[in-house]
Deep mutational scan, measured.
Amino acid sequence: GATAVSEWTEYKTADGKTYYYNNRTDESTWEKPQELK
């Protein structure tokens, strides 16, 4: 099967917290998305 390329990108805020942003859905989350686990 084809490997899905994750749409999630990991970013850090100014105070060093990590969050994740999805370019396709324009969604952001503090929790690590399922695709990255």
Rank of each mutant, 00 (worst) to 15 (best):
E10P: 05
N23Q: 12
K17R: 15
Y20T: 00
W30N: 07
A2K: 08
T3G: 12
G1F: 14
W30H: 06
N22I: 01
T13L: 04
N22L: 01
N22C: 06
R24Y: 14
Q34C: 14
Y20N: 00
T3Q: 14
A14M: 09
T18G: 02
L36F: 13
A14H: 10
E31R: 05
R24G: 05
E27Y: 04
K12E: 05
K17A: 06
G16N: 04
T18A: 06
T3H: 12
W8S: 00
Y21H: 09
E31F: 09
N22S: 03
E10T: 08
S6E: 10
T25G: 01
R24N: 08
A2W: 11
K12S: 06
Q34Y: 11
E35K: 04
T9Q: 12
N23P: 10
S6Y: 10
A4P: 14
W30E: 09
E10Y: 04
Y19T: 02
Q34H: 11
G16W: 00
E10L: 05
V5L: 13
T25L: 05
E27P: 01
L36H: 08
W30T: 10
Y20C: 04
D15I: 02
T3W: 11
S28T: 15
D15S: 08
Y19A: 04
K32R: 10
N23I: 12
D15T: 07
A14V: 11
W8P: 01
S6C: 15
A4E: 13
Y11F: 11
A4D: 12
T29E: 03
T9S: 12
A4V: 13
Q34T: 13
T9M: 11
T29M: 08
T18H: 05
V5R: 09
S6P: 12
E35V: 07
T9P: 00
Y19H: 03
Q34F: 12
Y11V: 12
T29D: 03
G1V: 14
V5M: 12
A14P: 12
P33G: 02
N22G: 00
Y11I: 13
S6H: 09
Q34L: 14
D15R: 02
T25E: 02
T25M: 03
E27I: 07
A4Y: 08
S6N: 11
S6V: 09
Y21I: 07
E7I: 08
K32I: 11
K37D: 14
Y11L: 15
T18P: 05
Y20M: 00
Y19D: 01
P33Q: 02
N22W: 01
K32V: 10
Y20L: 01
N22H: 02
D15Y: 05
E10F: 03
A2V: 13
R24C: 10
T13S: 08
A2H: 13
K17D: 07
P33W: 02
S6A: 11
G1S: 14
E7S: 07
G1D: 12
D15W: 06
E7F: 07
A2S: 14
T13V: 02
L36V: 06
